[in-house]
Design a protein around this nucleic acid. Sequence first.
RNA 1: GGAGAGGUGGCCGAGUGGUUGAAGGCGCACGCCUGGAAAGCGUGUAUAGGUAACCCCUAUCCAGGGUUCGAAUCCCUGCCUCUCCGCCA
Length: 421
Amino acid sequence: MLDIKRIRENPEAIKSGIKNKNDNTDVDKILSLDEKRREIIREVEDLKSKRNKVSQEIAQKKKAGENADKTIAEMKAVGDKISSLDSDLRELDEAIRNIIIWIPNLPHQSVPVGSDESANVVVREWGKIEKKDFKVLPHWKIGEKLDILDLEAATRISGSGFYLLKGLGAKLQRALVNYMLDTHSASGFLEIAAPFIVTADSMFGTGQLPKLENDMYKTTEDSMYLIPTAEVSITNCYKQQIISHGELPIKMVGHSPCFRREAGAAGKDTRGMIRVHQFDKVEMVKIVEPENSYVELETLVEQAEKILQGLNIPYRVSMLATGDLSFAAAKCYDIELWSAGIEKYLEISSVSNFEDFQARRMNCRFRDKDKKVRHPHTLNGSGLALARLIPAILENFQNNDGTVSIPEVIRPYMGGIKQIG
RNA sequence: GGAGAGGUGGCCGAGUGGUUGAAGGCGCACGCCUGGAAAGCGUGUAUAGGUAACCCCUAUCCAGGGUUCGAAUCCCUGCCUCUCCGCCA
């Protein structure tokens, strides 16, 4: 959520930022409502001040045994005026809020301006894409052949858009999760196991609501939501908290299933495990002082890259253009890995700085070295998504005899076996 | 799910409808004292909004309504916590 003061003070900058994010919120409407709101606040607060004073006078008179009926009658009128103004004020607050909650975060100045992904900038590539001398099978074929991936069973159970791993496939996922959690823990991230079902308020806090309402699974009885990413649960650990001085930066990591309706996505890159309604992911979250957040963003990307480097999978890192940024992000790097079977770069991690956007929505604050209370910056990054990582391993580590080698760092997590099949 | 009890500042804990933003204590910060420390003494110690301004004003004692000239205090609703019972991995 943007600070109303910031909107009031730099309306033009806000407007252009919003435009670069492909949003068309009416900023002038907010400004005029805000002006009116402050006018009423001044008026109603004057009246309240008067009421407080006179109420004390009434108390004095009563104590002295004097009659205060006339004053009380006058104050009744003042009281009525106050409640009427208070109700106007509530309406204005509501009206402003209903606009402001839909405004996306503004892009950072270092983000390339562009309306879509074609303006994204590749900032680095790592590893060598190996040309295999045989036809690499896509993951859904090699997975079924090795009997470690059963998409049919998943469909039987849950309909389209789900996957089911079994045997060494299931074990591979568990091993990868453990490898990633261990790697991040060793870098100082506190491991968190948080709820997967959260309140609307938490979804609002990290910016999924109200905009992404239709992309999420919701429970009918209690209006709870299934998390689309562990970012929601982990970041909201600090919802409505004032973090003591010296506690920042906070670094957390957690593993969770991610539930996404993927409404309207049918038909596009949907084969196999690539786009599904439920997948596992390891997610990193940082809460940091504003001054450091862009340095922290770089190290967070590097932290995610460590995993791919450890596995020895080639990838590239792109900086997203303004129009491709998510609702809450001010700056974002995508990490894409090369998948040899479907011969595509697959997005496997998205690492973002939200600045104070989420902190404002969550009402999360920290005490800085001058004891001032301020909003921290929040960041998060996948580290990494299993439903993309497993296909990449099945394809990139495929051998011409139809077996799949286990990346070396994963072998200790799989009882020492070197390959599947 | 059933029955009770309860939600007050960083924490504990007072609070008859009328200078209570809130006693007292603890903690914390600073100062005095000391060779240094402890103890002791003194001072300070919430958040948000209105404002150029922590000068002032307003709001906030779980949240939202209501009664009243005036609500931490009375009424209603919701949420949460605790205890006991039930159920359960």
